[in-house]
């Protein structure tokens, strides 16, 4: 008779429980009404079951977002865990929607659920992908924009994981600056 070992039937638990949110830009509704929780998961297997079941970012309509956040943190600046934080922001050009967007987003998800940022993983709140006509964006949100050491380390590791060239700079911006900006650009607190 065949023996089934525990490794064959137990799911692999993640360090954190994560919530995947979907934002659909319906102008007849308010911002929070357009934000929907899709599902929560806390094992490797349940992550893939969800990921394999939903559309890739490149297939979403313009104005839509996916957000993956630790359970208990809402994907908005106003959440207590986000309000002092900021984001590593990657802006993609239009061509990259076909070449890089889905690959970068999956890599971002794997960084988060696998706790890729070593001792700084606790700083991570979540990640967001915005699908926009002018160019898509992917960002990793962290909880404290003053925590330079953690932020820079996360940024460097993230860039490595995405396979970005050394010349390609990504910037970190505080949510405070992003929400109060008057023009279309926000100053970078850090860049790697």
């Amino acid at each position: 008779s065949e023996t089934v070992t525990p490794a064959q039937y137990l799911k692999h638990p993640l360090q954190n429980r994560w919530a995947l949110w979907y934002f659909k830009n319906d102008k007849t509704k308010g911002w929070t009404e357009n934000l929907r929780l899709i599902a929560k998961f806390d094992t490797v297997e349940d992550f893939w079951a969800l990921y394999n079941h939903i559309q890739q970012p490149s297939k979403l309509l313009f104005g839509c977002d996916y957000c993956l956040f630790k359970d208990g943190i809402k994907p908005m600046w106003e959440d207590d865990k986000n309000k002092k934080g900021g984001r590593w922001l990657m802006t993609l050009n239009k061509q990259q929607r076909h070449n890089d967007l889905d690959r970068y987003w999956l890599e971002t998800l794997l960084c988060l659920i696998g706790e890729a940022f070593d001792e700084h993983s606790d700083e991570v709140c979540g990640a967001v992908v915005n699908v926009r006509p002018k160019g898509d964006k992917i960002a990793i949100w962290t909880g404290n924009c003053q925590n330079r050491e953690a932020i820079v380390s996360i940024g460097q590791l993230y860039k490595e994981r995405l396979g970005l060239s050394l010349k390609a700079l990504i910037g970190y911006q505080s949510h405070d600056d992003t929400s109060s900006k008057s023009g279309s650009t926000t100053k970078n607190l850090f860049s790697v």
Partner: peptide, 20 residues
């Protein structure tokens, strides 16, 4: 300890999950 998984480990489960 922390449950950390590298990308290859995670990727290895992508299609196992669907079949269970």
């Amino acid at each position: 300890g922390k449950k950390r998984y590298d990308r290859e480990f995670l990727l290895g489960f992508q299609f196992i999950a669907a079949s269970t």
